[in-house]
């Protein structure tokens, strides 16, 4: 027991080492939050283009080109590891020491998440009965008005649980921030380990923090799913 207290003291109290993890927690939250927002915006736009072309809503050549760009984006992002994307973004695309690492991480994870969100939104849009489109169009709504007022709200509701799960995945994915020397929870814990040569406690602490966050989020998703089901509409 004394041993444990000593180790705890060494890893977290001495030199205020706990702050590595606390700062990391802030970074993890910030990166996840803004990457999620970027991912939703990007994903929504991509899904809009993809499903418009799929449904034959427009024959415009611009849209066809956009659709091809979207397809390439989806293939590349979903076909390569997030870590490689992060490294390329930091070392190749920005390759400047002045750039904010947090900004690079948000951009990289946002673009990554957007690809998955896009497919979630698209499946949501495609799952809405075509009769809903026809009812909207027959009242005189344009394609985009039908999308905004009639299809998207229903699709969004259907995919809310899947979307929430994507954010949980995103949160865990940000644990590779350390590869661009950005201190998130994982990198913070690893920094303590490298200073104290005590791997068990800091890594366990990091794991525990992720577990608590994910459990709380999953609980909220479950609640949301039950609420959507009992709403029954």
């Amino acid at each position: 027991m004394d041993n444990f207290i000593a180790k705890f003291q060494l890893n977290f109290i001495d030199d205020s080492r706990w702050r590595y993890i606390a700062d990391g927690l802030g970074t993890t939250f910030t990166v996840t939050f803004f990457a999620a927002i970027l991912g939703v915006i990007l994903g929504f736009l991509v899904a809009l283009v993809r499903s418009t072309v799929d449904k034959g809503g427009s024959k415009s050549i611009v849209l066809k080109i956009l659709d091809t760009i979207c397809k390439v984006y989806l293939t590349v992002i979903r076909g390569t590891p997030a870590m490689i994307q992060l490294l390329i973004m930091y070392y190749v695309i920005f390759s400047s020491p002045d750039i904010s690492k947090q900004f690079v991480a948000i951009l990289s994870f946002g673009i990554n998440s957007g690809a998955y969100v896009a497919e979630i939104f698209r499946s949501g849009i495609m799952s809405i009965d075509n009769g809903q489109f026809e009812a909207g169009r027959s009242l005189g709504f344009s394609y985009s008005q039908t999308m905004i007022h009639i299809i998207a709200p229903q699709a969004f509701k259907n995919v809310l649980p899947a979307l929430a799960n994507e954010f949980i995945t995103l949160l865990k994915e940000t644990s590779i921030c350390g590869y661009i020397a950005l201190t998130d929870i994982t990198h913070g814990a690893n920094t303590i380990r490298s200073q104290t040569y005590e791997p068990l406690l800091p890594l366990l602490a990091a794991a525990l923090i992720y577990l608590v966050i994910v459990t709380v989020l999953s609980g909220l998703v479950g609640k949301l799913e039950r609420k959507l089901r009992t709403d029954g509409r």
Partner: peptide, 17 residues
């Protein structure tokens, strides 16, 4: 013109939300 042409479908197609 569709605003002036109403349509009623076999499966109603009311907006469920």
């Amino acid at each position: 013109y569709r605003q002036k042409i109403g349509m009623v479908f076999q499966h109603f197609n009311l907006f469920p939300h």
